[in-house]
């Protein structure tokens, strides 16, 4: 059957990615899990992203509050600001913004690292020595992302609420205790749980895309930049797509 070159290329890439994902899953359950490397990646991915996630989360909550306060004040509804900020941040803005920030920081760094290991034949060297590069490099990074992104999102949510309080405090005299009581009193488990679940998938997507782009990059030095760049773009698009799917599923199964 004759297919157009672009369709052929698309199918080839899809098959390659499916194959890579299968290899990742198969290697999780193979003996000799790389615990030390997994923990090191959790540290690199989680701990070293705390700063950027904290600043982004704080500013997000602060700005969101400042932007919505005047409008709600017009209707005398400024008392609803804490709960509005809290629900928006926990359900949607926190996970998506953290996901996008991590796509930029983590997917690019994994893509560039594995891409440069590929260019300098380090991956070939591992394979020829009889070691398992997928288990050492890919499984540990994807699983570390899958575990750390939800935790980073929770941290960003907390920072957003803190930023929201500072925002409220600049123009009203609401106490901190009242702000946090108002924030959480309208929050249900059904707001929180789906958001955490979707961040697990965001983490999986970020780790997978970063590893795939780096691991399968070409041998030239230019391909390192290309791997990093395409990892950010693809991971960001995946986060938006996964979020859209998660919102639909949540509307059908949770909020209905």
């Amino acid at each position: 059957m004759n297919l157009s070159p672009s369709l052929n290329n698309f199918l080839e890439k899809t098959g390659e990615q499916a194959n890579f994902f299968t290899s990742f899953v198969r290697n999780i359950f193979k003996g000799g899990f790389e615990w030390n490397e997994f923990l090191r990646q959790c540290y690199v991915i989680g701990y070293k992203s705390l700063g950027i996630v904290a600043v982004t989360g704080f500013v997000l909550g602060f700005v969101f509050t400042l932007q919505s306060l005047p409008t709600l004040k017009e209707f005398g509804a400024q008392g609803y600001v804490p709960s509005m900020v809290c629900i928006s941040v926990i359900r949607e803005i926190g996970p998506v913004i953290t996901g996008l920030i991590c796509a930029g920081k983590i997917a690019s760094s994994i893509g560039a690292e594995l891409g440069s290991m590929n260019v300098t034949e380090q991956i070939d060297s591992m394979e020829i020595s009889g070691a398992n590069p997928v288990q050492y490099l890919v499984v540990t990074r994807i699983l570390a992302c899958t575990c750390m992104i939800p935790l980073l999102t929770l941290f960003a949510d907390a920072m957003s609420l803190a930023g929201g309080y500072i925002g409220v405090n600049t123009s009203t005299n609401m106490s901190m205790q009242l702000y946090f009581i108002k924030s959480v009193q309208t929050l249900y488990f059904s707001d929180f749980f789906p958001a955490v679940i979707k961040t697990i998938f965001f983490g999986l997507a970020i780790g997978f895309v970063g590893c795939y782009k780096g691991y399968t990059s070409n041998k030239g030095t230019e391909s390192v930049g290309l791997a990093a760049n395409s990892a950010v773009v693809a991971a960001s698009v995946w986060i938006i797509i996964l979020d859209a799917i998660a919102v639909q599923l949540t509307s059908v199964f949770v909020y209905n």
Partner: peptide, 24 residues
């Protein structure tokens, strides 16, 4: 197999490079 560029694992020390294949 000795690669042209050495292909040393640059995120590991010399000790870890040497131990890598032994352990795995």
């Amino acid at each position: 197999f000795l690669f042209q560029g050495g292909a040393l694992y640059d995120s590991m020390t010399v000790r870890e490079n040497l131990a890598f294949a032994l352990q795995r």
